[in-house]
Nucleic acid binder design. Structure first.
Length: 158
DNA sequence: GCCAACGTTGGC
DNA sequence: GCCAACGTTGGC
């Protein structure tokens, strides 16, 4: 049986990189993940073709801004080797990289952002990780039914 | 600006 | 291995 397409939520501060930036670029490296749990999701569970809710964190208001798609498997994050990068990790080496990226492509920008407050208030989204207090993980798995519901709330077709 | 919730670091 | 101190994330 073929693997079911996965669904994810990726957080980005829009002042650093927004859905509009992704729309302009078409595709980007999802660099700078420096949390082991998030890294393990990239490595072990994320697959080419998976769909992504693009979440604007530290925004006013925070919320889901659009949709992206995973277009590569995980591979070493080049910024870990670059002393000039804010993501530099002196413990990483080319032989033994510690951090990974995936390539992510633009799919759609919601007409209106779906605010976190709306997600929290929606009974159908109960249990969705991002609605949980203190949930800081920047790469989160999303249940298919939650993904579909967020698109519904965004008034986004199919 | 405040602070909860973690994750990391480093002394022991 | 324990744990206190510290730093970061990120909502409010």
């Amino acid at each position: 049986m073929a693997r079911t397409r996965g669904h994810w939520l990726l957080k980005s501060e829009p002042t650093a990189y927004s859905i509009e930036d992704l729309a302009r670029d078409g595709q980007t490296f999802w660099e700078g993940v420096r949390n082991h749990q998030a890294r393990n999701f990239l490595r072990d569970a994320m697959r080419k073709g998976d769909l992504v809710l693009f979440y604007h964190s530290n925004a006013k208001p925070p919320g889901v801004a659009g949709i992206a798609k995973v277009v590569s498997d995980a591979y070493p994050d080049a910024t870990q080797f670059d002393p000039e990068s804010r993501y530099y990790d002196p413990r990483a080496s080319r032989d033994q990289p510690r951090w990974l990226v995936v390539d992510v492509a633009f799919v759609a920008c919601f007409k209106h952002l779906v605010p976190l407050a709306t997600l929290k208030a929606d009974a159908a989204l109960e249990g969705m990780l991002v609605t949980r207090r203190g949930q800081r993980l920047s790469v989160q798995p999303v249940e298919q039914r939650h993904y579909a519901r967020v698109l519904e709330l965004a008034g986004h077709p199919g």
